[in-house]
Design a binder for these strands. Structure first.
Lengths: 173, 173
DNA sequence: AAATTGCAAGTAAGTACTCACACATGATTT
DNA sequence: AAATCATGTGTGAGTACTTACTTGCAATTT
């Protein structure tokens, strides 16, 4: 991967995350990246290819987060790690996560499948703790994760740390 | 409001909700509405004015839903009504709600202010029930219903009714 | 007759994308 | 060692088309 290719990906991520995919023209990406517009198409084929490259590149980040949680053997610790997940993302990855949420609505891109291992691990944890409906409890936690993440990314004034405290108490962690 | 104005609003709502605001051209709206493209600008000024008209028209729907809940005197009943809110929306209003969620990410339009009365009512309800952190509990409930609503609108396979059952049990309703 | 509603045909600017060409690097042939 | 070739990187002007929006004029309503 050349220097200019990285520049293009970086610029596209910033703009797609801020303005959205459709609202960002390839000429804007080229200008911010400091390259000719044609180079984008040379390297990535078309605008959609550019998006795919960003997504593949970033899919690893999600995997890393999830794997660390799924591997946890102690069920209570696993649930705790899950709840704390939103505050453990790097600030420099914010653009990528924002893009992820934006695309979910703009292009109906589902990232739910990638969360499936986490869902299973959570269900197992709740099962070990003898909760009545482990599957549902797992879904509920994921619902909360998504909600917290989205309000963090939108810059809401919700106090995330207090919310985490509350949840930890609810699940006796 | 003339017949053609309504046709335009209806067509725009459908397309904005399905494809998104930026991905929908005024010519597509005109075609679906069966009018000339110029008419859109005669009536609504510009594309943004068209969006505003839709949003104002639909803001009433949100108000109606919220008012019904806020007026409830019994705290347990109020919380119950809130949790059940997502399944009580008319199916014919789906496009409007989908648009609402889409815009939250595409144009960073915040509908949080309109939820504020509901948040206060919820906090009050939890206070009456002598919960430890009524404000946080209210935020958490809103997080849940936002998550449930969004997965309903995206056609996720989450079992909404079971989830509502679980929540009701958790809050002893 | 005055105002409103509506249309068809514009406009300038922007869109994703292409293409001919230049330049560099390294391998292969003379 | 010099010349040829192949290949990947990069440019910038150009393509056909779409975009939001305008304008002049006719039909309808008030």
């Amino acid at each position: 991967m050349t220097e200019k290719q990285e520049k293009i990906l970086q610029a596209a991520l910033i703009l797609f995350a801020k303005e959205g995919f459709h609202a960002t023209s390839t000429s804007k990406v080229a200008k911010l990246a400091g390259v000719s517009e044609g180079l984008i198409f040379r390297h990535f084929g078309n605008k959609d290819g550019l998006l795919q490259a960003i997504l593949e590149f970033g899919a690893e980040k999600l995997k890393d987060l999830v794997v660390d949680i799924v591997m946890e053997p102690d069920p209570k610790e696993l649930i705790k790690k899950t709840i704390q997940m939103p505050v453990n993302v790097d600030k420099e990855d914010f653009d990528f996560w924002k893009l992820q949420f934006k695309l979910k609505w703009e292009l109906e891109v589902n990232s739910d499948k990638k969360m499936e291992p986490l869902h299973m691990a959570l269900a197992n944890a709740f099962r070990k703790l003898e909760y009545e409906s482990p599957e549902l409890e797992a879904s509920l936690i994921l619902l909360y994760i998504e909600g917290i993440s989205s309000s963090m990314l939108k810059g809401s004034n919700l106090n995330v740390n207090d919310m985490i405290q509350l949840l930890m108490k609810k699940y006796e962690l």
